[in-house]
C-alpha cells in the first residue's frame, strides 16, 4: 500500500492520556467536569459520549491544551500538563492531532496548504513535504481538490481535509470532537474507517460523539459523561 502514510507506533509505558480526579470550570463559572479519572493507553481507541452539554468538548479542550483544569492532574505521554512550560506547549501540541465538528480549516488557504499547515509551522520547506502531503491527500480521497478552497467543498470533503491536517505530522494521539456531526451517515462511517486505519498505524484515538450508530460499529471502550461526571462502560443502549 504505497499511498498509506506511516505513523510510527509509539513506545513507552505511559498512557497517551491520563486524567486523575480532574475538575474544570470556565473562569468563575460553575464546575463543568467533576472528578474525572480515566486512561487512554498509547495506541488505544476509545469513544467519549454523553448528551449535549455534558462536557465532552470541555474535556477535549483539556487534552489539546486549550484550557487548564482547575483541580486534579492531567498527564499526556507521562508529562503532567500543569508542569509544562509555555515554550513546551507547541511540541506537545504537535504530538496531538485535533479534529472538530466544524472542521476549522482556513478558508484563504487551499486544501493542500491547509493540510500542510503543521509542517509549514514546524519550519519545513514546501518542497520537502510536497510529496508526502500529496500522498496523504490522495489517501483521504481529495486528489481532485488539492488546490481548491475549503468553502467550495462538501462537509465530508472538508472533514477529510481536516483529518489529513490532523495526521500529517504523524501525531501519537488523535482526538476528534463530534467529527461526523456535519456529514451524512454514509460519510460518517467512511470517516470512522479512516480513524481505524490511523489507529492501526499506531496512533491512540479518542472520538467524542453522540452518534450511537458509530459506537455500535466498533468494539471499542466507551466512556459516558453525565453532567460532567464520567461513567465507564462497554455498551451503550
Amino acid at each position: 500500500m504505497v499511498s498509506t502514510p506511516s505513523i510510527a507506533p509509539t513506545t513507552g509505558s505511559h498512557p497517551a492520556v491520563r486524567f486523575d480526579t480532574v475538575g474544570m470550570r470556565y473562569d468563575q463559572g460553575p464546575e463543568i467536569l467533576h472528578n474525572v479519572t480515566f486512561d487512554l493507553p498509547q495506541g488505544g481507541f476509545q469513544f467519549l459520549t454523553g448528551a449535549s452539554g455534558a462536557g465532552k468538548s470541555s474535556l477535549m479542550r483539556l487534552i489539546y491544551l486549550a484550557k487548564r483544569c482547575s483541580s486534579g492532574t492531567i498527564s499526556l505521554f507521562g508529562r503532567n500538563t500543569a508542569l509544562l512550560g509555555r515554550e513546551e506547549l507547541p511540541d506537545m501540541r504537535r504530538r496531538i492531532g485535533v479534529i472538530f465538528q466544524d472542521f476549522r480549516l482556513l478558508n484563504h488557504l487551499t486544501v493542500f496548504e491547509n493540510i500542510a499547515l503543521p509542517l509549514r509551522v514546524a519550519g519545513q520547506a514546501r518542497k520537502s513535504y510536497s510529496e508526502d502531503v500529496m500522498e496523504l491527500i490522495n489517501w483521504v480521497g481529495l486528489g481532485e481538490h488539492t488546490h481548491s478552497y475549503p468553502p467550495t467543498l462538501s462537509g465530508g470533503e472538508q472533514q477529510r481535509a481536516a483529518i489529513a491536517r490532523a495526521v500529517v505530522a504523524k501525531p501519537d494521539l488523535i482526538i476528534a470532537d463530534e467529527p461526523t456531526g456535519n456529514v451524512d451517515p454514509a460519510m460518517a462511517h467512511r470517516l470512522l474507517r479512516l480513524f481505524v486505519e490511523l489507529n492501526k498505524l499506531g496512533a491512540a484515538v479518542l472520538i467524542a460523539t453522540h452518534d450511537h450508530s458509530l459506537i455500535r460499529a466498533m468494539d471499542a471502550p466507551v466512556m459516558e459523561l453525565k453532567n460532567g461526571t464520567l461513567i465507564h462502560g462497554e455498551a451503550v443502549s
Binding site: Y64, A66, R86, E87, L89, P90, D91, R93, R94, V98, R104, L105, L106, L117, P118, V121, A122, R165, A169
Partner: peptide, 15 residues
C-alpha cells in the same frame, strides 16, 4: 480562527 488553527497545529506564540 487563524491564531487558534495555528496553535492547534503546534505554532508557538512567537510564530
Amino acid at each position: 480562527d487563524v491564531a487558534d488553527a495555528l496553535h492547534i497545529v503546534g505554532a508557538p506564540d512567537t510564530f
